[in-house]
Simulated assay, not measured.
Amino acid sequence: MEMDVTDSQSIDNIFQQVRNRLGPVSVLVNNAGIIARGPAKDLSEDEWRRVLETDLTGVFLCSKAAFSHMSNLGGGSIINVGSIAGFVGLAGRLAYTTAKAGLSGFTRTLALEWAKDGIRVNTVAPGWTRTEMVVKGLQAGLLDENVLVERIPQKRLADPSEIASAVRFFASPESSYVTGQTLIVDGGFTINGH
């Protein structure tokens, strides 16, 4: 199944298909994301809008679609996949960092509003992870793995499975009393002062 997270009708269609096949949605992971690289002065309005529509508006639309499923079940868990880009400046990624920073406020506000419906909302903010997006940046010479690893106290990029473990925690009953939080999973990158 494919879905366009910027299109409410596409989202509604997929949620209906999921309900028909598996029942109501009890866990939603908002993980769609794109990036536009380059200096802010060269960022086009179209690129800005495309990144924010996917990385932030898509989270809103999918979460809103999940609400009726989860509230009818008496609760659920929404996990947003953010980024360390929401906590540190990353030159050449203005739209992406803006969208990811916005997820923190989105997460706290939605968690506050939907707690009465039994819906928990949290964010996992990965650091440098060997994802397709990062690998493409490395291959294009836009990122330098040695430079990145030097800044990470654990001296390596994360494996995607390590991020998945944090997401799994928020989806599980083990996090039943946790909502409105952002868990940074970055090998110590954001605490490193240089």
Rank of each mutant, 00 (worst) to 15 (best):
G38C: 09
F60C: 09
E132Q: 14
T109A: 14
G141D: 09
A85D: 11
R130K: 15
Y96L: 03
V167F: 06
F169K: 05
V18N: 06
E2Y: 11
I184Y: 01
F169H: 10
N13L: 10
V124I: 05
C62A: 15
T98H: 05
H194K: 12
T98Y: 01
E162A: 09
V25F: 06
G188R: 01
A166P: 09
E45F: 02
A85L: 06
V185T: 10
L103W: 00
V25W: 06
L148A: 12
I191N: 13
V135A: 13
A91Q: 14
L103R: 02
N13H: 12
N20F: 03
D12I: 02
E174Q: 15
S175V: 05
K136Q: 14
L61H: 06
S172I: 11
G38Q: 05
A66S: 09
T123S: 14
L22A: 10
G127C: 05
V51A: 00
L157W: 04
L110F: 12
T190S: 08
G118C: 03
A164P: 04
P24G: 06
I152L: 02
N122W: 10
G137F: 05
R130E: 12
N72C: 01
R130H: 09
M3L: 15
G92T: 07
F67Q: 07
A36W: 02
S83P: 08
S71E: 12
V29E: 09
E2T: 13
L148Y: 09
T131G: 11
N80K: 13
S26N: 14
F60H: 12
Q16M: 01
A171W: 03
G74V: 00
I152P: 03
Q17T: 14
T131M: 11
D55R: 02
A166Q: 12
K100I: 01
D186L: 08
P153M: 11
L90T: 13
T54L: 00
K64Q: 15
A91C: 08
T123N: 13
G38L: 09
T131Q: 09
K136A: 12
Y177A: 07
V149M: 11
G74Q: 11
K100S: 08
L143A: 14
P39I: 04
S68A: 14
M70Y: 06
V51G: 01
R168Y: 11
G86S: 12
L90G: 02
T54C: 15
F87N: 10
R156S: 10
D7I: 12
W128M: 00
T98L: 01
G105W: 08
G193M: 14
A95R: 00
V51Q: 01
N20M: 10
E132Y: 05
E45Y: 03
S172Q: 08
D46E: 15
P39F: 07
N72L: 11
I11F: 06
S8H: 09
K64T: 10
L43N: 07
L148T: 13
W48S: 08
E45C: 08
V149Q: 09
A99N: 07
F15P: 03
Y96P: 03
S71C: 07
Q17A: 15
G75D: 00
G89H: 10
T57E: 08
A115V: 12
T97G: 07
R21Q: 14
T98I: 05
R93C: 11
K64D: 07
W128N: 06
R50S: 14
S71A: 13
G188K: 04
M3P: 02
L90I: 15
G180H: 04
P153L: 08
V51N: 02
G74M: 08
I34Y: 01
T98Q: 02
